[in-house]
Amino acid sequence: MNIQPSTQTSLPEGDMAYTILSDLKRVTREYTTAATESVCPEIRQMFTELLNNTLTMQGELYDAMQQNNMYNASSPALKQELDKQLKQYQQTQQKTNQFVQQAQTAQAHIPPNSAGQSTIPAYQ
């Protein structure tokens, strides 16, 4: 039996690079989720290191693609819009911190019920 190699059409370099870049973006989202949801500090650290390495690869690939005119960056954002978004995120972070502090204070002042658990509902 004689098997002939199949004729395959390969993707142009730009398309292949874009596919890899998209995959790196997906992987960074998954590592971020894994690090965020990790309870064990060692596992969290591992996912954080994997995330940082993947972000570095993603940045290097993006730079190479942009230098070779394979990727068109979006138009620059206005500083005013960025400042507005930053302020909103900072306000959200401050409210979140206040909520966590209040919940922790309330948790510390509530005696455990008969099952040895607090009566404050747990949020996941």
Rank of each mutant, 00 (worst) to 15 (best):
P76H: 02
M16G: 00
R29C: 12
S75R: 03
Y89K: 15
C40E: 10
A35V: 02
A64Y: 07
G14H: 10
L82W: 07
Q80G: 03
T7L: 15
Q80E: 11
F47S: 01
M70F: 01
N68T: 07
T19K: 11
S22N: 15
S74A: 03
T32F: 08
K87D: 10
M57W: 05
M65P: 00
E42G: 13
R44V: 08
T48G: 10
D23G: 07
Q90I: 03
T9E: 10
I20F: 04
Q88A: 15
T48D: 09
T9V: 12
L82P: 13
Q90E: 13
A35W: 12
Q45G: 06
L11H: 05
R29K: 12
A77N: 10
D83L: 12
T56W: 08
Q45E: 08
D23T: 11
Y31W: 08
Q67S: 15
V39D: 13
M46I: 11
S74N: 09
S6T: 12
D15F: 09
G59Q: 00
A77P: 02
L24G: 02
N72R: 06
I20R: 14
S38V: 01
Q8V: 15
E30I: 08
L21E: 02
M16L: 15
N53I: 07
D15T: 13
E81K: 04
Y31Q: 04
G14W: 05
N53Q: 12
R44A: 11
L50T: 05
D23Q: 14
N69F: 07
T54C: 02
I20L: 05
Q58H: 06
L55Q: 11
L24T: 04
T54Q: 03
T19C: 05
K25F: 11
L24M: 02
E37N: 12
S10W: 10
E30G: 04
Y89F: 11
M65K: 01
I43S: 06
K87M: 13
G59R: 00
T56S: 07
V27H: 09
T32W: 05
L61D: 00
T54V: 05
Y18F: 15
A34P: 09
P76Q: 02
Q45Y: 14
P76N: 04
M65S: 01
Q66C: 09
G14A: 13
E13Q: 14
I43A: 05
L21F: 03
L21T: 01
A73M: 04
L86T: 10
E49T: 11
T33E: 15
A77D: 09
M57V: 10
I20N: 10
M57L: 13
T28G: 08
T56G: 13
Q88G: 13
M57T: 14
S74D: 07
R29P: 04
A77E: 12
E30K: 15
T54W: 00
T54A: 07
L24Q: 00
R29Y: 09
T7M: 15
N52T: 14
